[in-house]
Amino acid sequence: MQLIACPWCGPREEVEFSYGGQAHVPHPAAPADLSDEEWAHYVFFRANPKGRFAERWNHSAGCRRWFNAVRDTATYRFEAVYRLDEPRPVTP
């Protein structure tokens, strides 16, 4: 069981966290202006890369705060965690 570093609480066991899917997929500002296809992309389509992936995580059994993380989907390693109001960090 790996440790995930909550930006607010520090390293905690992964069972305290829940996964929130791809990060940086904002709710469209004006959904009514979108075509069905554009809206469907927001609702249903997410990236599924092998390698680095910016994702949302929630420290659901801890401080209950959401944050973002860059994780390698092949190794599971968390390479960076960052607050929602921070930009995606540049990982080496």
Binding site: G20, P26, H27, R56, N58, S60, R64, R65, W66, L84, D85
Partner: peptide
């Protein structure tokens, strides 16, 4: 409750 929190935190801070 989680649903409301999620939207408040992630979309409408």
């Amino acid at each position: 409750l989680d649903w409301m929190e999620e939207w408040v935190q992630t979309e409408w801070p």
